[in-house]
Each structure stands twice: as C-alpha cells, then as structure tokens.
C-alpha cells in the first residue's frame, strides 16, 4: 500500500479512524500472542477476526485495524479502534526461519525483508496511538529491550499502557515476575489462547483507557 509517503502519519490515522474514539495499539515483541489476543477481542465483541496466527515469528508484517470495537464492563463501556501491530525486534535473521522453522531460503528472505518493514510500520503507528496493550510472554524474561523501549516511549509521552501477561496456560509461566517488574502499570495475566481471565483484561481496558488522559502534551 505504501501510504506513509506524503501526508503525515497522524493525518492518515485521523482519516482512517475519524476522531472520536481511543485508538488502542496492541504492541510487543514477535510471537508473544498479539494477534491471538486481537482475534479473541474481536471474536468476543464483534464476531470478526483480525489476522493470521503462527508459531513462526513475524507472522504479522502489516498493521491491521478494526474500528468501533465496543467493549462493555458492567454499566460502562468504551468504544475503541484496535490496531494489531507487527512484532517489534532489534534484529531479524532470515536463517532463523530456515533453520528453526524449515521455510525455504527464498521464503525466509522475503519474510525477513517484510519483517523489517513491519517493525518500522509498528513504530510509525506508535505516534498516533492513544493507549497501548503491551503483550508480554510470561514464560520469558520481562526486561527485554523491546519491552523497555516501548514502555519508556509511552511513559515519556504519558500515554496509558496496560500489560497483558500472556501464555499463563503454559507450565513455566510466571505472571508474578511481570507484576513485580512493572509495578507502575496494570498487569493482567491472561491466556489469549484459552480465553482465561480475558474478562478481567476487558474491564481493566475500559477503566484504564477511559480515564481522561491527564497530562497529554500540547
């Protein structure tokens, strides 16, 4: 599509979304379950699906969005535009796709090229977003650079972020580690795969993202 060229990204996002609602990005490193979560949210609240899921990292290589997703929580509700973003990484090695996942050389090289473009696209979308669900894999170390960078970026701009500690159905998951690592943000343990505790995620989203953005710049 390549529509990032001329007009500024925020004006494009404006056009895509209109102005009314909170634009919420689902962010995180590759393979943590962002699209699985996006699909679950859409399935629960709109009946659609967002995109394809895979055990191979960098499955999502273009941002995808769904407008007007209304999530209810008791008497309150929040209508959001939800963006599923490509996983953000500091490196992309096509040989990993060949050696670990058995893709052909040509396929691996194409996937790697698109993955680098996807990371750039995710970062561009970050500029126009009102809040973020940062998805982390709770079987892994919390302080990875991508997590630190995304959180630092959002904190510097005073944007609300909610951490979804995903994959808690796995035996070696440790959502408590994530909770103690990021005490300044709400951390909700979930399994996007089984749906476990997603009601809690939804109510936290409604509460956390409805707050008037207190100190928004400008």
């Amino acid at each position: 599509m390549g529509w990032f060229g001329k007009s500024s990204l925020s004006s494009i996002i404006q056009r895509v979304f209109g102005k009314k609602h909170a634009k919420i990005g689902i962010y995180g490193p590759p393979n943590v379950g962002k699209t699985t979560l996006a699909n679950r949210i859409l399935r629960d609240w709109t009946g659609d699906i967002m995109g394809s899921v895979s055990e191979i990292p960098h499955e999502t290589r273009r941002a995808k969005w769904k407008k007007d997703v209304k999530i209810e929580n008791g008497n309150s509700s929040l209508t959001m535009d939800i963006v599923d973003t490509p996983g953000i990484a500091t490196k992309v090695d096509y040989k990993e796709f060949m050696n670990t996942y058995g893709l052909s050389r040509e396929e691996s090289r194409r996937r790697a090229k698109e993955a680098t473009e996807g990371v750039i696209e995710s970062i561009k979308w970050l500029e126009g977003i009102d809040g973020v669900v940062l998805v982390m894999d709770s079987t892994q170390d919390p302080f990875t650079q991508v997590n630190v960078t995304i959180l630092g970026n959002l904190e510097a701009r005073n944007l609300p972020v909610l951490i979804a500690a995903n994959k808690i159905d796995e035996d070696d998951s440790s959502p408590a580690t994530l909770k103690s690592a990021f005490p300044q943000h709400p951390v909700v343990p979930i399994s996007a795969l089984t749906g476990y505790n997603t009601e809690n995620l939804y109510s936290t989203m409604v509460k956390h993202f409805s707050k008037k953005r207190r100190k928004k710049r400008r």
């Binding site: 490196k91 992309v92 473009e117 750039i120 970062i123 960078t149 630092g152 970026n153 904190e155 510097a156």
Partner: peptide, 14 residues
C-alpha cells in the same frame, strides 16, 4: 532516551 532507542530500532531495520 526512549525516543532515541525507538529511532535506533527503526534505523537498524532500515
């Protein structure tokens, strides 16, 4: 800074 880190990731990808 977080903004510089974000730009570094972007530049690295390029």
């Amino acid at each position: 800074t977080p903004t510089e880190q974000t730009s570094l990731i972007e530049n690295t990808m390029k």
